[in-house]
Design a binder for these strands. Structure first.
Lengths: 213, 213
DNA sequence: TAGATTGTTAATCGATTAACAATC
DNA sequence: TAGATTGTTAATCGATTAACAATC
């Protein structure tokens, strides 16, 4: 039973590292490891032992002196913190190349989500099946949201329409945006979270690095 | 003509912000804006004016007192720094859902790259056309690399094979990895750059944020 | 010239690392 | 018990912000 020394507010730098901890620990578990010290984990993850202990202690005393961390427990705890056992309903807007790939490729359940509806403005796509869901026309989005109340919207649409659709979805109760639209959407409501994903940015970083040599 | 007060080494925090500057400035240019002050740009990008001036000054004095920044010049300069006018050859390994979407959806030229070959281990996919390129069998990868010397490899393959293929590609001269394989590949050569992209991580962050409410 | 706004130095803030007493 | 390793406090480091003289 971990000491519940939780920090009242945890910095974003720590939060951003949690998914990576979760992945590495999950992998170690699969390999049959049952415990690890902060030092050994630091080595595997290219971090410092100090940082790992600091990070984990933001949420509670998950370790044990002289022993280290029980990986089963730690995995479960971090999973709970991240909410991977939730099933937040998500709608995907835009069934183009990227939208379809996200729908088909991502194991939503693994990340605390459930894909509940796919929408596209192209009537030619209506009725096609993607990831076992029928593509619905965008005109049905409003009714769908009123009925299903999805909390997450995944935007795989052109930059030009992104902000407009995001604003509508806010009015329909969406609380989180996973935005692939190449445009940083801006939501003024402060209780709504936005992840602007820019795949091009990380590709540019590679070009930059290659230029430096 | 900017004063060339370049810093000898620029911190990673700054580099990571460059693509976003590039995007915002590009957008302003499209809207017909020709100059902007650090204060106005800061407002648009939700940064501080101080930070913008500090960031840009790592690379040179691109502004002018009393005037601000010329957007055409600034866009060109940042583009050059990032290397968006290069055409680094890239190979894509893995023509599944995600691989195909990346191939079809990304405008590589915009990011300083050129997609030169697509490979998959599934012989059933050989010869299919993706993004105007024929899918080649993985057995041809070695010859291809010796002939074309791609500098970038894009990994859209299962986690289990990621590290192994990455190691082979290092031996074939690849200098940069854009890795979507759900596994953090580790390359010991210090002149080789790796961008481990974990789409699930940002989705988990949304689940986390929703849990907090 | 006067006003605006940069480039740059100094001050502050936050995040990482080091150290070690507590404790399993 | 002795050894190992945590939780936690203090020291360091780096990044952001503030301030202002330089200058267009």
């Amino acid at each position: 039973m971990p000491k519940e020394t939780k920090k009242s507010v945890v910095s974003n730098s720590v939060i951003k590292r949690l998914p990576r901890y979760y992945r590495f620990i999950g992998e170690l578990l699969k390999q049959g490891t049952i415990r690890i010290s902060s030092e050994k984990l630091a080595e595997k993850m290219s971090l410092t032992a100090s940082q790992i202990r600091q990070d984990l202690n933001c949420f509670g005393g998950f370790g044990q002196q002289g022993y280290g961390y029980n990986l089963t427990e730690l995995h479960k705890e971090i999973g709970n913190i991240l909410g991977v056992h939730e099933a937040h309903k998500a709608v995907l807007i835009g069934a183009g190349n990227l939208g379809r790939a996200i729908a088909a490729h991502m194991d939503f359940a693994e990340y605390g989500c459930r894909l509940a509806g796919i929408f596209d403005s192209d009537t030619g796509k209506t009725g096609e099946t993607v990831a076992e869901l029928p593509v619905l026309n965008i005109s049905e989005l409003e009714n769908f949201c009123r009925r299903e109340s999805p909390q997450i919207a995944i935007l795989c649409i052109p930059r030009a329409s992104a902000q407009h659709i995001a604003d509508s979805l806010v009015n329909l109760g969406v609380k989180a945006f996973w935005n692939f639209s190449h445009y940083d959407i801006k939501i003024s409501h402060k209780d709504i979270v936005v992840e602007n994903v820019h795949l091009g940015d990380s590709l540019m970083m590679l070009s930059y690095a290659l230029k430096q040599g």
